[in-house]
Design a protein around this nucleic acid. Sequence first.
DNA 1: GGGGAGATATAGATGGAGTCTATGATAAAC
DNA 2: GTTTATCATAGACTCCATCTATATCTCCCC
Lengths: 294, 294
Amino acid sequence: MESMINHELYKVFYLAAKTGSLTQAAKALYITQPSVSHAIKQLEDSFGITLFYRNSKGVALTQEGAILYSYIEQSNILISLAEKKMAELKNLEAGELKIGGSDSLFKHYLLPYLEKYHKQYPFIGLSLIHGTTPEVITYLKEGRIDLGVVRLPIVDPQLEVKEGIELQDCFVAGAHFAELKGKVLTLEQLMEYPIILFSRNSRARMAITELFHDYGYDIKPEIEVGSVDLLIEFAKKGLGISYVTREFLSKELDEGTLFEIQLDVHLPPSRVGVMTMRNVPLSSAAKTFVEYIR
Amino acid sequence: MESMINHELYKVFYLAAKTGSLTQAAKALYITQPSVSHAIKQLEDSFGITLFYRNSKGVALTQEGAILYSYIEQSNILISLAEKKMAELKNLEAGELKIGGSDSLFKHYLLPYLEKYHKQYPFIGLSLIHGTTPEVITYLKEGRIDLGVVRLPIVDPQLEVKEGIELQDCFVAGAHFAELKGKVLTLEQLMEYPIILFSRNSRARMAITELFHDYGYDIKPEIEVGSVDLLIEFAKKGLGISYVTREFLSKELDEGTLFEIQLDVHLPPSRVGVMTMRNVPLSSAAKTFVEYIR
DNA sequence: GGGGAGATATAGATGGAGTCTATGATAAAC
DNA sequence: GTTTATCATAGACTCCATCTATATCTCCCC
């Protein structure tokens, strides 16, 4: 390892062999001919092998030089490919973007951004990785995703959080509970109806449980489901009153298939946010995407 | 091509990625850590891409860095193989030696050298390429052989000639002409016997024709053959008197199966020589072999 | 054969890229 | 809190790649 050869010399050798002329190689490298001559000499000296025949028309590879060239040519081709790939990655003509989050946020919050992004950068592969907030955080820390989209607040010194839009959770019912339309209920009154909540381990569920607790109540759902779509479906079928994010229901509220229950207490809004690792550089693809989100 | 990247930086990048530590890479490269840090920064700046995550335990490749590494690793492996190969060629642990010449010279002159050489450098491939003197010269100039072994004199400014041993051509006969043993013949007397000569286009043939011509005679062979072995065989069978190089017959002369005809004129000796291209470097294999020959 | 046009080689000067030392900043380990 | 890793930064220095100028050689053409 003492006599490790300067790889820059191979670049000179490559061009000299390729052009068959030290003078031509010099031009291609934007240096002078003596520099090329010197570089080749260094290579020859460090191998103790003559690499070129010199004649008045230029240079030609010796037997040994030709052997060296066969390796160096491949090596340099790889480097060229690497540089091309780096340019592509930089210009977002290649790459991959991996996002963690919940399906409902993907569908109702991220979808328009993803569509626009994919249209503009069609060669960036997209991976959406479903998981709960703690799972998403774990994926982030393990480097399995570039960014996570979750409900705030997130308190973790390792994470950088960018706030997104505000979401308002609310209780909704379908035609079966039409008598409640226009009325303002107390929490106590609400609890007399069958309640449908998201499954126990979600953040939204914990938030609403805590809110009721603050008011001295203990909310117990009739039904627990595992997706926002089911919350909506069950409410529409009249199986109960669902607690769900209002922004995810705009279609049903417009149609009138579901209506919002008015309460005498304010349900705190939540905010969606984009998490990335603090002190860890984002890929070009991820950096650009984060700037899309407002 | 303006922003051609210094390939030396890839060597640093490679080791940094491989060891996962700028400090370790620095040690392997016998430079200091800030130099490595600087080199990586240059690479990152010229790509406009972050290649490593830095943390207090070392460095880890980013997504893009890992892509670059996959190329550079291959490239560097090729360079290592190239350097290994060069060392082998230098130490004559690999390579090829191509020699041009006549079969008789290969067999009777070069064989012992070839044996010894091959024993010492078993991994050098040997190619013996048969041809007449002008053919051998052509092969040399075309680069198809490293050196040629032929009868001197050779006059060609492009060729470098190293003189070898002296050979003496002579006329020999077998038991059938036993009456000639011990006698001294004139050329005229000799010509009364059937003569066996090498085929018309050989140098030896031309030389003897010219010699007879100088003495006013025109030698016409009874038989013409294409190899030294046949000259010897035919003489042994008593088909005539062969003109052949004495050194190629030592076995037959010792055994007494053939004897040399004494003449009243001196037959000029010829010298064997090794030709190489002037001003063209020899391969390590060829250089070493030429030094074997004395 | 002389001279021009091309090639590479050589010598010596020069400047800047790469390297060093010293230090800072940060995180983890103890 | 202290120590010991890590990488980053700043500024000085130095060595080596490069340059200019010239030599040498070969071919080719007049």
